[in-house]
Nucleic acid binder design. Structure first.
Lengths: 129, 129
DNA sequence: ATGTCACATCATGATATCACGATATGACAG
DNA sequence: CTGTCATATCGTGATATCATGATGTGACAT
């Protein structure tokens, strides 16, 4: 029961769906997500705790960075749920933008490892244009 | 995006999970759910609107009663999510009790149709004993 | 057309969740 | 053992969600 409710909470906020969609592309450390998803570090961190409590993601430390990844148990279910709404998600401008920025940020890795810390990508001031 | 968030909201509350689990057993009208799940009619109704907005359930009228059913599109996904947590759900005492009471309430139908209105089952005062 | 009854919606107060800035933690470097 | 830096947690005010009782609505019977 509670597991289902926690999974629901993990999915019930647009910011968290963005995070999960990004993690479907690649494992990411917090600083990479801060840059790619353009949200405050504390905001991001608290959402990460929420989806971690749901057992959807797990963490691993590498030097100073903490990397987040979908858990092996949750990944298939998340993929199924996302897949059943793929078209709606791909049509979302915010999601599309996230995808691009995640790729940009991953390009800055050395040997597939994030070494740079936050603040590496342009934080374009307004998305209105 | 928003579809996923709405699905998440549908799953993110224990009361709604109980409702969905009950509807997995059988289509049910509101008065049957009021009796079986032992919750206030207005409380139930507002949760039903929440999961309806998510496209998870749909309604049909029969005489005075409104019957709720999982939609054909959402049912497989809900079954998958529930199935991946079946053991935890079956272990939940509230869910187990709901299952029994749903069956009891369904027994009161005539020709597989609810004809009785709410208040047909004992609303046992405390579950503490 | 009027009353009845199942269901929906509204109003309200209590609680939870959100974003954000400030502060704490903890692993590593020097 | 001290400073630094990535991340976590805390504090706060704004907003959303919850349960509940009161009221509204709409389909049917008479």
């Amino acid at each position: 029961m509670n597991d289902v409710v926690l999974l629901g909470k993990a999915l019930s906020d647009p910011t968290r769906v963005r995070i999960l969609y990004a993690l479907l592309q690649s494992d990411l450390c917090v600083c990479e997500m801060v840059d790619a998803l353009e949200m405050g570090q504390s905001t991001l961190s608290s959402h990460l705790q929420t989806i971690r409590q749901a057992g959807v993601v797990e963490t691993s430390r590498r030097h100073k960075m903490v990397s987040y990844a979908l858990t092996a148990e949750a990944r298939p279910l998340i993929e199924t749920i996302i897949a059943s709404n793929r078209s709606a998600l791909e049509a979302d401008r915010r999601i599309a933008r996230d995808q691009v920025r995640v790729q940009e940020r991953i390009q800055l890795r050395k040997n597939d490892v994030c070494v740079l810390g936050p603040g590496q990508l342009d934080r374009s001031e307004d998305t209105k244009k």
